Simulated scan of single mutants.
Amino acid sequence: MSKDNKRSTQSGAARLLGSATSAIFELGVFHPVDTISKRLMTNQTRVASLSQFNQVIFRKHAAEPFGKRFFTLFPGLNFAFSYKILQRVLKFGGQPYVNDFLNQNFMKSYDSLFGSKTGKAMRSATAGSVMGLFEVILLPLDVLKIKSQTNPEAFKGRGVLRILKDEGITSLYRGWGWTMARNAPGSFALFGGNAFAKEYILKLENYDKATWGQNFISSIFGASASLIVSAPLDVIKTRIQNRSFDNPESGVTIVKNTIKNEGITAFFKGLIPKLLTTGPKLVFSFALAQTFIPMYDNLFKKA
């Protein structure tokens, strides 16, 4: 049996802790960046000056000193903390299990279709896509995070329990289909781009043996591919989720209105800022997870 066809020896605890640690570091460094990205995506006006940019990002706090404005970029931190840790554990910790399954049961099929090297990368990409679909179960936390970042008026002083009572759990799953449509190709590109970089650029035989620098380089390829592929659906998803609870709008309606009022390029609105802001966040988190998981596993084996 080849190396690829053997089940990974990494423990579940290492995968969980490694993914959770990367999420905590990511949140601490990049939550303000995420808020800026979400506000740019939900903005439907043309930003042609620094003053307008300032207004979009800081809103009613735009005229305040920068110190005060900066701390307005941390709304929804409680939702973000829960969502981000669960999301990263599910995606980064769960993908290796699906990859193990594919290696065990479908290795020959992939290799016959794509060749051994590309087949190995494609299995990693497919496993990532599967976990991207499963992320939809965390959608309520994502919705609450995005609303608190872009439309805090939707809360009107209400807590989570009151929102669930008033709106029902189904309102927090609004846009679930668009979310899955965005997550599947986005996660496929993330893990696929990462694997292709390790296979063809870094020429690694064992991905788990990659150094921090190699994980960082491969994560750049994966994150960039993921953001570009998922950009149009991410705009639709964000606009669905940032609407007030009492004024929902379907994804189809948003697509029609966006094309009519803003043109097709609107589906890539915020892509450059996203590549410059969200890109480093994803690279940072993904590289950390790929480094921490083997590190924790080695520590557990030595204990």
Rank of each mutant, 00 (worst) to 15 (best):
V136R: 03
D208K: 14
S129F: 09
Y207Q: 08
K198C: 04
N99T: 13
D111Y: 08
A184G: 01
G213Y: 10
L190E: 07
A154F: 09
F191G: 02
F196C: 12
K165Q: 11
G193C: 08
K117H: 11
G168L: 08
V130R: 02
A223W: 06
W178E: 02
K120H: 10
N103H: 00
G159F: 12
A210N: 06
F188N: 03
R239H: 04
K117W: 09
L139R: 04
M107I: 07
V160H: 08
G157N: 07
L172Y: 04
N215V: 10
Q149E: 14
W178C: 03
S112C: 10
M131Y: 02
F101T: 09
G213A: 11
I236S: 04
D166L: 14
R182V: 00
E153D: 12
G222A: 01
P232T: 12
Y200F: 15
S148F: 08
D234V: 05
S219N: 01
L164A: 05
L161G: 00
D208R: 05
L190D: 10
T238Y: 07
A121F: 05
D100Y: 00
F188H: 08
G186N: 10
V98N: 03
L204Y: 06
P96E: 08
Q241N: 14
L227S: 00
V235N: 13
G119D: 08
A181R: 00
I201Y: 11
F106Y: 13
L161M: 12
K165S: 14
I220V: 15
I137R: 02
I220W: 14
E199T: 08
L113M: 11
R182Q: 14
L144D: 00
N99P: 02
G192F: 13
R158M: 13
G213V: 10
S171H: 11
